[in-house]
Nucleic acid binder design. Sequence first.
DNA 1: ATCAACAGTATCCTTTTTGACACTATATGC
DNA 2: GCATATAGTGTCAAAAAGGATACTGTTGAT
Lengths: 130, 130
Amino acid sequence: MAKVRHTRFDCSPGCSVEAAIRLIDGKWKCVVLYHLLDEGTLRFNEIRRRIPSVTQRMLTNQLRELEDDGLVHRKVYAQVPPKVEYSMTELGRSLAPIISALKVWGDENIGRFGTPLAVDADQPRIRQST
Amino acid sequence: MAKVRHTRFDCSPGCSVEAAIRLIDGKWKCVVLYHLLDEGTLRFNEIRRRIPSVTQRMLTNQLRELEDDGLVHRKVYAQVPPKVEYSMTELGRSLAPIISALKVWGDENIGRFGTPLAVDADQPRIRQST
DNA sequence: ATCAACAGTATCCTTTTTGACACTATATGC
DNA sequence: GCATATAGTGTCAAAAAGGATACTGTTGAT
């Protein structure tokens, strides 16, 4: 059987890094987390406006997963023009060092590997413009 | 190539987070990075043995991407039983705080989501510690 | 002569993720 | 009556990721 030789992080007994990254893996999750950590409470469309290239469906998906993982709290107001507020839970806030480390690293190194999202129009990497 | 200044990021400051996470996104990348950070230099099959559930193809893929991103250095010895050594580049080592933050968080919270990777068959699917 | 070890490739296939688009219902403002 | 804003859903299709398996060519050991 799998004897645990590495008692620290190995993929069998407790791949804690894997576990952690699974929560923030997803095309938009970390961006959402960043904004919620940064601004506290945001409504659905406020988040959308901060992430222009996310679709409604995707944002909903990501928020639902974050909610299911207990990282984000979703507060629905029983109003007729709907109002839903998103904020970080305590558990979610405990991710702050990770998000922060990612941001620090990204800020310092972003010039190295190019644009993650479509910033320049002349590079048809993902989308083909019509 | 287009050096994108941070201010050019109209998709909000969260983009650098996004950029950073893209590098370590991938099912096995962070595990590979961990082992290379931990042990310095490893040969291909040494990495394989440390990550039993990764396939050859996947490991090759992940290593190639890490190499392309400049995080990992690949040194090929012109020998006839092939010998290839992998190690972290300086840039790769600069990721250490991120990997470390992920590990710290994961270690503290892994009981929350159960086993991230069911590697061996007789592991209980749901593991709860309290 | 056969086999294992090395570091991969190549091919096929399934699953997951993501995108595009249309649609819901209600209230307010014009 | 019509458009707008709200916070979504639903469906279909494409793309990407990942898994299984087989194969490469050489050397040294059995």
